[in-house]
Design a protein around this nucleic acid. Structure first.
Lengths: 174, 174
DNA sequence: AGAGTCCGTTCCGAAAAGGAACTGAAAAGT
DNA sequence: ACTTTTCAGTTCCTTTTCGGAACGGACTCT
């Protein structure tokens, strides 16, 4: 994982991966979301090496995803809490959970259920269109080059693909 | 990334990470979703080392996320296509994209836009409740221990947290 | 005083990644 | 016919990262 190359890419997925693109980081964020906010507790829970945990937490603070909140002074000790930016990653985690529930759960069923407090039902998280609110199927969304698009490392071929598609779509319109 | 420890965990997120828990795999899946389905094209596009790409593609086929589809015979050559299991990972990618768009995009705006063909609008993907269809806020969902839950590696502390919360909720009901 | 908690850092051997070169089979150029 | 190019890997070697155990420091508890 070339640390630098990812956030250089003109791609929101790559830039997200620059923050959470390894095996441990999402699990650390999961623990914190569950209210396990201290170094030792996370380390015990995950069985992660203290060294790597220390590095990951530092990077997450660096990225503005977590913040250190002091809970005692004598030896300075902190809880790690999500910032708004960090809390917003929950949807990524929930999407992973939904996929894992569907494709990797044991016969018993999923280990964790979610209740939607507003409607009271046990639920799962599904993707919806921000505009019409309808549930989204993958086949219903088409990618287009956006205002921030530039051909560069990590998307040269994608640029070509999109150009071809958009040209075809324009031709079809005429 | 301890290959084995992750899929051993009683957690859908961990088991998902066992499949896509590194920096390259999601980008490879993104490329394939865009229709870049051949070894060399992916390699060129991402600048990933051929060795790692080869390993990742093999693992994804192994996991049943991708399948090799022959497109010529003499030297056997394949396109990599998503299976249903693989296509279903698109929502994880879209969640990453949505987060990246919001928190890491440049001033120009996001590099890629999505059009929802059903309603015609430029959109972004938001989480919704599968039951009531309402848009979900993270604070509206409560995790509960599910049928497949077992205390074990990776969730001992979580088990304790949930137990406490569920006990508190039960007490509040009475 | 001695053990326990908490959060790290340090050191070392093992594993993984990066990178360039090499193989192999066939099509395409000259 | 011969060389170059395309395509998909594999191999080898160097650099980075990881895992694991030990150590440190600042305190609290018994």
């Amino acid at each position: 994982m070339a640390r630098s190359s990812l956030d250089q890419m003109n791609c929101s997925i790559a830039r997200t991966l620059d923050v959470i693109g390894d095996a441990w980081t999402p699990l650390i964020l999961r623990d914190i979301a569950f209210g396990i906010t201290r170094f030792d507790a996370i380390q015990r829970n995950l069985g992660i090496s203290r060294k790597v945990l220390s590095e990951r937490l530092g990077a997450l603070v660096e990225h503005g995803v977590l913040q250190r909140v002091p809970y005692q002074d004598k030896p300075a000790r902190y809880d790690y809490h999500p910032t708004e930016k960090g809390a917003d990653l929950a949807f990524v985690l929930l999407a992973m959970q939904a996929w894992g529930d569907r494709w990797t759960a044991s016969d018993d069923g999923p280990p964790i259920l979610l209740r939607h407090e507003t409607c009271g039902a046990l639920t799962k998280v599904v993707p919806a269109c921000a505009s019409c609110g309808e549930r989204l199927a993958v086949t219903d969304v088409t990618p287009l080059r956006g205002p921030g698009f530039e051909t560069g490392p990590g998307n040269a071929e994608i640029s070509a693909v999109l150009e071809r598609r958009e040209a075809a779509a324009t031709a079809a319109d005429a």
